[in-house]
Design a protein around this nucleic acid. Structure first.
Length: 429
RNA sequence: GGACGAGUGGCAGAGUGGUCUAAUGCGUCUGACUUGAAAUCAGAUGUGCUCUCACGGGCACCGUGGGUUCGAAUCCUACCUCGUCCGCCA
């Protein structure tokens, strides 16, 4: 949630920065200001009435204690509670609509973010090379490899859960499992994260806290009877661990690495990437979450991307880092880097990590603050990044390390985890 | 799922309709004493909103939401969370 003060103090600048997202949000600024003004007028009126009521009521108490009559005071106060109730009701209404509006406005993009739509995304750097395969060999997409190797069962996944779900099998299931362990080990042992394992279902207010709700409810799986939601990323459950907290200066930064499955309805992307497991309703991910002091968040963002990149480098996967444009960034991000890994079988880049600095946008929504050096209570800055998303990392691994004989030769770092260096093809039928 | 009990400031804990402006203790901070520290003494110490150029006011907050009342931490009500016991269960 944006700070109401920036609307009051810099309305034009706020309009300009919202406009760069290209969603028309800048047209709501006037509405925010009108509601804010109405709200403050109501507060002034109702609080004056309450002050008077309190004064008179206290006087009643004093008179009673002295066994004196207070009838003249009752006459004076008669209509006040009614007026207060009326105004309070009105104020509740105005508060609710102001909040409802503020909760649907996205974060303001940082000045360093390129302006424009998707085509304005800036390639910051790339690492490695596209893998070279023997003359005459065309690398296969993962769904064909999966069939040869027996590592995924896409058809039966559909039988139990519908389209967009995956069953890992045999060496595939083992690879998925050891990847989780590998990722957590690197981040906790070498990057200083605290491993954390949270529930995969959360309450509504958590989804509001990290910004999935109220705007994107159609993309979320909900459990209606209990008003709970399946997390679309552990960013939700992990960041919200500290909702409604006031942290000491020396408690920051907080750094968590969390494994969780992620559940996404992908309501807006029906028909896109339907083949294989590029876009699925459930996937595993190791998420990195930082809660930091305001002045540290941009340096932290660079560190965070570095941690995700390190994984791909160690696994020898070709990737590039994009700085997303104002129009392509997520709702909560002020600045966001995507990491895309090359999938030679598909012949495309796959997004395996998205590292965002949300500044104080989420912290305001979840009332997460810290005492700064001067003892002032200010919102924390929150960051999150995938380190990394697994289904697509799996795809990139098998497509990159496939051999013409149908086998997969795993990169060295994974071998001790996996327990062997090769996934052999099934005996041909 | 059932029964009973409990939720008060950073922590402990009093307060059961009216100067509650929430006692008291611990903790923390500042000062005094001290070569320094401890001990002791004195003072300070919540959050949010709002008005004001400022000084300084006002309002709200005792788990959460409703309600009763001129007035609610206190009474009523629903819910949430925690505890204890019972039942069920991987």
């Amino acid at each position: 949630m944006l700070d109401i003060k920036i609307f009051r103090e810099q309305p034009d600048e706020t309009r300009r920065r919202l406009a760069t997202r290209g969603r028309g949000d800048e047209t709501r600024v006037t509405e925010v200001l009108e509601q804010d003004e109405l709200r403050r007028k109501l507060i002034a009126t109702v609080e004056a009435l309450k002050a008077e009521r309190n004064r008179i009521s206290k006087e009643v108490g004093i008179r009673k204690a002295q066994k004196l009559s207070a009838d003249d005071l009752f006459a004076k106060i008669k209509s006040i509670p009614e007026e207060i109730a009326l105004l309070d009701a009105k104020l509740t209404e105005v508060d609710a609509s102001r909040d409802a509006l503020l909760l649907t406005l996205p974060n303001l993009p940082h000045e360093s973010v390129p302006e424009g739509d998707e085509s304005a995304n800036r390639v910051e750097r790339s690492w490695g090379e596209k893998p070279v395969f023997p003359e005459g060999f065309t690398p296969l997409p993962h769904w064909e490899l999966a069939e040869k190797l027996g590592i995924l069962d896409l058809g039966r996944a559909t039988k139990v859960s519908g389209s967009g779900f995956v069953v890992f099998k045999g060496a595939g299931a083992r690879l998925e499992r050891v990847l989780v362990q590998y990722l957590l080990d690197i981040h906790t042992r070498e990057h200083g994260y605290t491993e954390i394992n949270t529930p995969f279902v959360v309450r509504r207010e958590c989804m509001v806290g990290t910004g999935q709700l109220p705007k994107f409810e159609e993309d979320m799986y909900g459990i209606r009877d209990d008003e709970l939601f399946l997390i679309p990323t552990s960013e939700v459950s992990v960041t919200n661990l500290h909702r409604d907290e006031l942290l000491r200066h020396d408690e920051l930064p907080i750094r968590y690495a969390a494994y969780s499955p992620c559940f996404r309805r992908e309501a807006g992307s029906a028909g896109k990437d339907t083949r294989g497991m590029i876009r699925v309703h459930q996937f595993d991910k190791v998420e990195l979450v930082h809660i930091v002091r305001a002045e540290d968040s941009y340096a932290t963002l660079e560190t965070l991307v570095g941690h995700a990149e390190r994984i791909l480098q160690d696994l020898g996967l070709h990737y590039r880092v994009l700085c997303l444009s104002t129009g392509d960034m997520g709702f909560t991000a002020a600045k966001c880097y995507d990491i895309e890994v090359w999938a030679p079988g598909l012949g495309t880049w796959l997004e395996v990590s998205s590292c965002s600095n949300c500044e104080d946008f989420q912290a305001r929504r979840m009332n997460l603050r810290y005492k700064d050096k001067d003892g002032k209570n200010v919102p924390c800055h929150t960051l999150n990044g995938s380190g990394t998303a697994l289904a697509r990392l799996f795809i990139a691994l098998v497509e990159t390390y496939q051999r013409p004989d149908g086998s997969i030769h795993l990169p060295e770092k994974l071998r001790p985890y996996f327990g062997s260096d090769i996934i052999p093809p099934l005996p041909s039928v």
